[in-house]
Structures are given as C-alpha cells and as structure tokens.
C-alpha cells in the first residue's frame, strides 16, 4: 500500500472512485439517524442519483442534499452511477427552497462523475437545471456546507457545491472534467489520463491551496473505505465546526462573503 507521499494524482482519482469507499448515503445514515428523504421534483420524476431530505444534525434540523453513486452493482445501476438528470437538480432546488423558507442550514455531499450526458437529459434542460442551482444557491440566505467525499466531476458536481465552506476528503477530487475526458479532448488520447491528472491540479491539496476548499480531512492509508466509522466521525466534526462558525454571521454578512468568495476566482 502506498504512503500518502507516494500517491500520484491519478492514484487519488482511483481512490476517489473506489467502490469500497463510503458513499453519500452512508454518511447521511451515520450522521443523521432520523433522516427523512423527500422524493421527486414535482414536475417529472424522482432521480435516485440525487438524495434530498431533512434530519437532525448537531442538535438542529438541517436540509441535506447529495449526489450518490451507490456501492453495489444494483445500487449503481439504480442511481445511474451518480449521474444526475435535470429532475435530480430540480429536486435539489425544492430542497433548497425549503431550507430558505424554514431558515435551515444546508449540508451537501458530492460524489458524481458528472451530470448525465444523455438525450433525455438534454430534452429536459440539463444545462438550465444546473444553472438554476448555481443561481439560486448563490443567494440563499442560509449557511451552506459542502463535503466532497469522492469524485467531483464538473458542472454536475458544483450544482450542489455553491457553499460557504467546502470540505474535501484527502483522496477526493474536483475537476472541470474527468482526466480521461481531459486527455481525450486535449491530446486525443484517453489513455493518457494519469498524465492529465498530473497537470489538472484536481486533488484536495491542490484545491486547498487555491482556496476552493477550506478544509481537507485526512484519510487512513488505503483510503476512506479502510475505516468508515473514523471518517464519519471526522466528517461530522468538520461539518459541525463549519456550521458553528457560519452561524455567527448575519444573513447579509453570509451572502456578502459567499459572493466575494466566488468573485475572487479570477
């Protein structure tokens, strides 16, 4: 087993995608035992790639949303490998609207290769659905904390990732597209993915240095799947700390800080 120093960026990509890693549903079950899941976008369908609901965390009710890949083959198929449809993003918008209405903090978990790139998704406005998530969350007057637990692929990931605090697990990644896609577009050769991962700067450590991530949670050697309970505890503590910090801000301060945060990139 490689030590953290020996891990190349592409090794971390593989760890981020490892099926033995706890999924969003596992973190939700462990941290929010009374979680009540809501279903459907009230327009077309319920998308199993996106989990939304409410529950108690840190002694108060919070809204929760996540992209979820599933761990077994059956689960992965049911959840479409975590690739959300527009209906999933619109379910998130429902969840967000409730968080705003009842002034509940919002906690999101990200684990997705990206939004579903299919015909049906395009027909129902995949781009519009994602844009609306960015647009509405940017002005939602409640604290938003995001945890990237595995793969954070492109626009489909950040739709649930407009946040005041972004926590990344040590072996999670966030990128503009997959290293395979990157290599195939830039060099017309998908097999150069490892090389692409080297130049893409997609690891948690890279994103911390850019200020995209605020906190990186260490993982045991071999990845989060080696000690899930330890990871639940660490993630729970990090989310609690972030929410405690954010609860000190007024709504105006919160929104101003969020706007400045994203304005600072570029």
């Amino acid at each position: 087993m490689k030590t953290p120093e020996q891990l190349a960026p592409y090794d971390r990509v593989k760890l981020a995608r490892d099926a033995g890693r706890p999924g969003s549903d596992d973190y939700i079950a462990a941290l929010i035992p009374d979680f009540f899941e809501i279903h459907g976008d009230r327009a077309f369908a319920d998308d199993p790639a996106v989990i939304c609901g409410i529950g108690t965390f840190g002694g108060r009710t919070v809204s929760v949303a996540a992209t979820c890949k599933g761990r077994t083959i059956d689960e992965r198929v049911r959840r479409n490998f975590g690739m959300a449809q527009p209906d999933g993003y619109r379910k998130f918008l429902r969840c967000l609207a409730q968080a705003v209405k009842f002034r509940r903090p919002l906690v999101t978990f990200i684990d997705t290769p990206g939004a579903y790139p299919g015909k049906s998704a395009e027909e129902r406005g995949q781009g519009q659905a994602i844009a609306e998530c960015l647009y509405q969350t940017s002005a939602a007057p409640v604290p938003v904390v995001t945890v990237v637990i595995g793969e954070g692929g492109s626009g489909g990931a950040i739709a649930l990732g407009v946040a005041d605090r972004i926590i990344m697990l040590e072996n999670s990644v966030l990128s503009v597209l997959s290293p395979e896609g990157f290599a195939s577009i830039l060099w017309k050769d998908a097999s150069r993915a490892a090389e692409a991962a080297d130049v893409m700067k997609l690891t948690a450590a890279d994103l911390l240095s850019f200020g995209v991530a605020d906190t990186v949670i260490p993982e045991p050697r071999g990845g989060a799947g080696e000690a899930p309970k330890l990871m639940y505890r660490r993630v729970g503590a990090a989310v609690r700390d972030a929410l405690a910090e954010l609860s000190q801000l007024t709504e105006t301060e919160l929104l101003e800080a969020r706007y400045r945060r994203y304005g600072s990139f570029g």
Binding site: Y135, V212, F265
Partner: peptide, 26 residues
C-alpha cells in the same frame, strides 16, 4: 464551455457569473 487549461478556476466561473446575474436580477 470550460477553458480546460484553467481547470477548476474555469469551473468557478460558472458560479461567479451565475451569482452576478442573480444579484443583478434581484
């Protein structure tokens, strides 16, 4: 879409521009 050579900074432009349009619209 994204300028791949600017990686995650390019991704952040989606949020930055959407937030600016939201403020303008608000």
């Amino acid at each position: 879409g994204a300028r791949m050579q600017e990686g995650v900074f390019s991704l952040m432009q989606m949020i930055k521009t959407s937030a600016a349009i939201r403020r303008f619209s608000g």
